[in-house]
Amino acid sequence: MEQITIDEADLRLLELLQTDASRSNQALAELAHLSPPTSLRRVKRLRALGLIEREVAILQPDRLAPLIGHGLTALVEITLERQGAEQLDAFESRVVPDAAVQQCYRVSPGPDFILVVLVADMPAYLALAQRLFTSDANVRNVKAFFSLKRAKFDPRLPLGATAGERGVTRHLLD
């Protein structure tokens, strides 16, 4: 097991990157109170350690809606008939590659999975439900909730600024 160590400067870089990853290294270094070479070296290390999974552009759905349509967001609860590890893995393996499935969570207690799906319209949701849920004999119950309005969306992880402010070094076991 590899031990990963991050410190206050790493936490500052991670927080800045998850707020806006499009900043130049020069701007990032200035905001993190580091030299540009140190900033670049640390960011490369954080990527190599797998702490930065990927960098993406977050699109504004309400601004895009006039151009591509609003779409339909559904939060879907799935309960399986049998919940053995093999059945849970099989369901997950089937739904995760589907482009309409934006997020997939195994949850407990209650349903086995919560999915966040985005489709063009109700007929597209029906096609997705038939493709992913109805065709699986192990799916016992499907309960969908359709979003009327998204009041908040924030993909940032809370990094615990208070630990960084105390100068605490964190160790993660991989």
Rank of each mutant, 00 (worst) to 15 (best):
G50F: 06
I52R: 08
V56S: 02
I58F: 10
I58R: 11
L59W: 13
Q60P: 00
P61Q: 00
P61M: 03
R63A: 15
R63C: 12
R63L: 15
R63Q: 13
R63K: 13
L64M: 13
A65H: 07
P66M: 07
L67R: 12
I68W: 11
I68F: 15
G69D: 00
G69I: 03
H70K: 11
G71V: 04
G71Y: 06
G71N: 07
L72A: 04
L72K: 13
A74G: 02
A74E: 02
L75I: 10
V76D: 12
V76H: 12
I78Y: 13
T79C: 06
T79Y: 09
E81K: 14
E81V: 09
R82Q: 10
Q83K: 10
Q83P: 02
G84Y: 15
G84L: 13
E86G: 04
E86P: 00
L88V: 11
D89C: 05
F91H: 14
E92D: 15
S93Y: 03
R94F: 15
R94P: 15
V95N: 15
V95W: 09
D98K: 10
A99G: 10
V101G: 03
V101N: 04
Q103H: 07
Y105K: 02
R106Q: 09
R106Y: 02
V107Y: 02
S108Y: 10
P109K: 02
F113M: 02
L115H: 08
L115A: 06
V116S: 03
V116L: 04
V116M: 00
V116R: 07
V117C: 06
V117T: 14
V117Q: 06
V119R: 09
A120P: 09
A120K: 09
M122G: 00
M122W: 02
P123W: 02
P123A: 07
A124W: 03
A124F: 02
Y125I: 02
L126I: 14
A127G: 03
A127Q: 00
L128W: 14
L128A: 11
A129M: 07
A129K: 10
R131Q: 11
L132M: 11
S135R: 15
S135C: 15
D136V: 12
A137Q: 15
A137T: 13
N138T: 13
R140N: 13
N141S: 07
N141C: 05
V142A: 01
K143N: 11
K143T: 14
F145S: 07
F146R: 03
K149V: 10
R150L: 05
R150Q: 09
A151I: 11
K152M: 11
K152V: 12
F153V: 11
F153Y: 11
D154I: 08
P155R: 03
P155N: 03
L157D: 05
P158L: 00
L159D: 05
E165S: 08
E165C: 03
R166K: 11
G167S: 14
G167I: 12
T169M: 14
